[in-house]
Every structure is written in structure tokens, then in C-alpha cells.
Design a protein around this nucleic acid. Structure first.
Lengths: 145, 145
DNA sequence: TATTGTTATACTCTATAACTATA
DNA sequence: TATAGTTATAGAGTATAACAATA
């Protein structure tokens, strides 16, 4: 049973506001992910960068910034740290020498696989019937702009 | 059509990761809300506090902190600002004189109503058939711990 | 001229510890 | 002893402007 205290806020209009719920759910998920990644020396941010660097076609820093909704200057710091640890490497983009693509190294790929096995997928908490709809709507909201 | 650049990241494993999608969707929603609230001198944080202060049974600062997943010291600053602007008032909790309940004033209620009319509900972007499921699952994830 | 990455800087947000008054 | 609120402070995260190299 809930306490009298929590019932007050749980019954509030805010408790049913989708924008607030998105924020609260994402904070809970991010904190859980950060705890899971901590033994590997990663956070959700660096793990996200590593995840993109693992792809067959490695992204430029500009692409990483836009996709993660970070300022390009923040990506510099994230890539710096991963590069110093030998998990990714910067390479000049042959099509545009201003740009640098960020690709995972061998150890980077290994670290990524370990990390991916460590984080618990949010979807495992859901009823099977809800997964498809929730996934689809969430992708819609995440990429609507 | 998407550019070649965005296709790279959109096709990544990360683009289908629920934890990442929650974060990206919440950032987009929060930025949109902040833009909508800016003319009223509010942000999502202060609007959230005001939303709770408007309830019939006003919450204590501790309850606000837990519900918004903020440190109690952050709530102090948020309530300070709203109180200086005359939108909320602190009152001693009769049941526990250590605690302070935060209630909206008349002008605070008016500001809340204006703010609520300004922010666009995320759900209006969804297909009608998806709303109920998405709302239910989101509430589950937002309050699972 | 515009864009990519970079650096420097300031700003906001978040987390921690210590204090007071009450319980 | 423990908890609610407060204060001070430090750390993390975010945003802005300016610069060099390239388009």
C-alpha cells in the first residue's frame, strides 16, 4: 500500500502528464543504466557514443551530436575520453576532410558487447502485448523533430 | 526523405533502445514545454512544483522532492523563487512542524491555468488507438521504483 | 560564405555535507 | 537518534562564442 504522502502526488494532474512521465521514466532508466555501466567505466552518454561507433558505417561527430541531441563541443569531450582509453579512433572522412568519423576499435567493440549485456532492457519490464505499441509510439516521439 | 547521414544513426541499435528513446523523447518534450512556458517566466521544473502546489491537499517539500526526483535542496530554491513571485506560499504542516506544505496562492492558480493552456499535450501527437496503452505503460515505467 | 571540429568560458543542474528545529 | 528544511559548495552537464581548417 502507498503511504498517505505518496497518494497526494500520485493523484495529481502532473502524475498523468505525458511530458512529466517521460522525464521521470527516462531519469529512472538512465540512473539504472548508469549503475549497471559503472563497473565498466562507462555512463549512458559514453555508452551511447560507443554504440554508434560500433556501427558498420561509423558516424561523424556532427552526426553523433545531432542524434544524441548534444552540442558538438560535448561530443569532443566524450570522444576524447573514449579515444584516450583506446575504445574508439578518429579518422578523417574521405568525403569531407573537415569531418572526422568515430569508429570503435577491437577493445571498443569488446567493451560495447560487455556493456550491452550489462544494461537491462526497459522492455523486459512490460507485458508482451504492450511492447510493440509502446516501442512504435516511443520511436515516433523520439524522432518527431 | 532522410539524408544519408541520418540514416546511419537511425539504423543503429541505439535507435531502437527504449532507454535511449525515453531520454530523447523526454528531452524533446521538455525543450518544447520550456519554450511554451518561457513567456510566463516558468520552466518545466517550476511548472511542476506549481502543479503540485495547486492540488487540494498541498504537498510538503519532501514529497515534492521525491515525486520530482530532485534533491530536497533543489526544491528549496524552486519554492523560494515561486514564493518571491507570490505564486506559492509555505505553511507549517499542522501534523509535523518540521515540514512545510507548499500551496498555490490565487495568482499562483491563475498562472498555473495559463501555463497548462500553453503547453501542448504529448498525447495529441498520437494516434487515438495508441493513447491508452502508451499512457498506461508510461505510468508503469515512471513509477516502477 | 558556410560548416566541422576544437577550445575556452559561463551557466544551469545535480549531488554532498553540515547545520537547526523538530520528532 | 532520525527526519524536514536550509545553506554552502563542489561537481557534472549544458550552452555560447570564437577560432583554424576545409568546403
Amino acid at each position: 500500500m502507498s503511504t498517505a504522502e505518496t497518494e497526494v502526488t500520485r493523484g495529481s494532474a502532473l502524475a498523468h502528464n505525458a511530458s512529466f512521465l517521460l522525464t521521470r521514466a527516462s531519469v529512472i532508466a538512465a540512473q539504472r543504466d548508469n549503475r549497471a555501466l559503472e563497473p565498466l567505466g562507462l555512463k549512458v552518454r559514453s555508452y551511447s557514443v560507443l554504440s554508434l561507433a560500433v556501427e558498420d558505417v561509423p558516424p561523424t561527430q556532427r552526426e553523433i551530436a545531432e542524434f544524441l541531441r548534444l552540442d558538438p563541443s560535448q561530443v569532443v569531450a566524450l570522444v576524447d575520453e573514449l579515444e584516450e582509453r583506446g575504445l574508439v579512433a578518429r579518422a578523417a572522412d574521405p568525403r569531407d576532410r573537415r569531418a572526422k568519423v568515430v569508429a570503435a576499435t577491437g577493445p571498443g567493440l569488446a567493451a560495447y558487447e560487455k556493456a550491452r549485456a550489462s544494461v537491462v532492457d526497459v522492455m523486459t519490464h512490460l507485458a508482451p502485448d504492450d511492447v510493440a505499441t509502446f516501442q512504435r509510439v516511443l520511436e515516433q516521439l523520439a524522432f518527431e523533430e
